[in-house]
Amino acid sequence: MLKKTFKAIDRGFLFVEEWSLFAAVAIALVTAMANVVLRKMTSDVSLYWSDEVVRKVIFFSTYIGCVAAIRSRSLIRIDALPQLMPVLKKPLTLFSHLVVLVFSAVMIKLGWQMTMMMYQDEYARTTTLQIPEWYFYIVLPIMGGMMFIRTLIVMVEDWRGKQDITGEN
């Protein structure tokens, strides 16, 4: 039962991560390329908002990329010390997971507060496109929740001594 639940959560998160990152990066790439082509081909046509789009995509992909990094066990952590003293590997891995859980909880709490603050401020809009800023801040608590759940799944995998409880490597 637990394995099926973890596998369903993993598939759902993987779908959201891959497709949202693909769409965001594709939008940034097309926007930036179009701006460069327009600037080089014409002397007076430019997409004045392309830089803002690219900045927002970098913001988005950084935070969603954190969730993906947990799945692949690529999130930054202490790994030099366990190589020197293998007995410290499990305690330091547990410490690393606990720090990520605390960080995730902080992201949920502060991200939600910041989102609500931006939502209540009618003037909080992006500079050029005039998109409400809270659309971008909502990524923070969502990412925090996804990180928290993913970290719990990885902790269970570590506790059971399996590399990947979802059946995939």
Score class of each variant (00 low, 15 high):
residue 44 D to N: 11
residue 107 M to C: 15
residue 111 G to I: 07
residue 93 T to Y: 09
residue 109 K to M: 06
residue 5 T to V: 14
residue 78 I to D: 12
residue 137 Y to K: 06
residue 151 T to V: 08
residue 158 D to K: 06
residue 86 P to F: 10
residue 155 M to P: 14
residue 135 Y to V: 13
residue 162 K to F: 06
residue 136 F to E: 04
residue 86 P to S: 07
residue 136 F to T: 07
residue 27 I to P: 06
residue 86 P to Q: 09
residue 105 A to R: 04
residue 132 P to R: 00
residue 39 R to H: 13
residue 45 V to H: 09
residue 25 V to A: 14
residue 3 K to V: 14
residue 151 T to S: 06
residue 155 M to K: 10
residue 88 L to D: 10
residue 72 S to K: 10
residue 168 E to P: 02
residue 32 A to V: 10
residue 125 R to M: 07
residue 141 P to K: 04
residue 142 I to W: 04
residue 73 R to T: 02
residue 166 T to K: 02
residue 75 L to F: 11
residue 114 M to V: 12
residue 94 L to I: 08
residue 66 C to E: 07
residue 136 F to Q: 02
residue 31 T to Y: 07
residue 37 V to L: 15
residue 148 F to S: 09
residue 138 I to A: 15
residue 87 V to T: 06
residue 96 S to T: 15
residue 168 E to V: 05
residue 51 D to Y: 00
residue 60 F to D: 01
residue 108 I to S: 12
residue 167 G to E: 04
residue 6 F to Q: 06
residue 139 V to W: 01
residue 150 R to S: 03
residue 46 S to Q: 11
residue 83 Q to I: 13
residue 141 P to Q: 10
residue 12 G to H: 02
residue 106 V to M: 15
residue 109 K to G: 07
residue 79 D to H: 15
residue 87 V to G: 03
residue 89 K to M: 13
residue 92 L to R: 05
residue 7 K to T: 05
residue 111 G to T: 09
residue 131 I to F: 04
residue 125 R to V: 02
residue 113 Q to R: 03
residue 46 S to K: 09
residue 104 S to Q: 13
residue 109 K to C: 02
residue 37 V to S: 11
residue 163 Q to W: 05
residue 152 L to K: 02
residue 89 K to G: 08
residue 42 T to D: 02
residue 40 K to T: 14
residue 55 R to W: 15
residue 75 L to Q: 10
residue 141 P to S: 09
residue 76 I to P: 03
residue 167 G to K: 04
residue 86 P to D: 09
residue 82 P to F: 00
residue 146 M to G: 01
